[in-house]
């Protein structure tokens, strides 16, 4: 079985982003592997360690620094990597999930993958669309928000997060697309010996423009602005005051 894992390079989760010139300012900002993609990588590597998978291929779409992000995935245990290079911003402004799904479709077909693992969403644009769109384009079954995953026969049982708890979904047979949620696993550290090994693994670069996919964004982004600063709170005199304000000002009580 060959697993393809999506690896997105995003602004690090700890960075407080600023908006400048009507866009998120990426200058001097720390970039990292999207945490949900990291969970997908971990899951794929575990499947390989259990000998359920023969090969794990990490795939990333983005600028040339994406190779660094791919090296992280390689250090965690992926076997090789494919970099679909583009200078478009990947945080929705220039390149949108529909185009990314099409790019992935090409690679999935080319690589004859049996399973595609993706993060449930990128923490920059928070769309959560690439996985479902890719499954649609491929005509494959999909499970989103995976919290637990077990291979079973030719297919797999996947527990997925819902608002009310989890539900278990059976995929009778592969191929399939699964997007990974936070509880699925706890990703490992890339250790020094593995960083050294990762150096020798293969990273293929393909120009996004050469894949015959329409990369133009279909949904124009009209405006980007920072959330308004939170208003200062007030201290109420008594419980009655509080109830009064909740009823008559906030109108959250009847």
């Amino acid at each position: 079985m060959r697993i393809l894992v999506g690896v997105k390079r995003v602004v690090d989760y700890a960075v407080k982003v600023r908006v400048q010139n009507n866009t998120v300012d990426l200058s001097n900002v720390k970039m990292s592997l999207n945490p949900f993609c990291e969970i997908a990588v971990e899951e794929a590597v575990r499947l390989k360690e259990k000998k359920a998978a023969d090969e794990v291929v990490a795939v990333s779409v983005g600028p040339k620094q994406c190779t660094e992000t791919l090296r992280t995935a390689l250090a965690m245990g992926c076997d090789r990597a494919i970099h679909i290079q583009t200078d478009r911003r990947t945080d929705y402004v220039d390149l949108q999930p529909f185009a990314v799904a099409h790019l992935f479709q090409k690679v999935v077909e080319q690589e004859e993958a049996d399973l595609v693992l993706l993060g449930k969403q990128g923490i920059d644009s928070d769309c959560g669309q690439t996985g479902p769109m890719l499954a649609g384009l491929l005509g494959w079954p999909q499970v989103t928000f995976a919290a637990k995953m077990d291979l079973e026969g030719d297919g797999m049982m996947v527990e997925r997060e819902t608002d009310a708890g989890t539900e278990t979904i059976k995929i009778p047979s592969l191929p399939a697309v699964v997007t990974c949620d936070l509880r699925l696993n706890e990703p490992r550290y890339a250790t020094l010996p593995n960083i050294m090994k990762a150096k020798k693994k293969k990273v293929d670069t393909i120009a996004a423009d050469d894949l015959g996919v329409d990369l133009e964004p279909h949904n124009p982004v009209l405006d980007i602005f920072e959330p308004p600063p939170r208003k200062e709170g007030i201290t109420v005199e008594s419980v009655d005051d509080l109830l009064d304000k909740l009823r008559n000002e906030a109108k959250v009580l009847k």
Binding site: S27, K30, S32, N34, Q65, T72
Partner: peptide, 22 residues
Amino acid sequence: SLRSSSSRLFSTASSSAGFDSY
């Protein structure tokens, strides 16, 4: 908490202000 884990690995600050940030 959200773990950054090895996502920090290979992460870099991109360029300084005034240049193409990529």
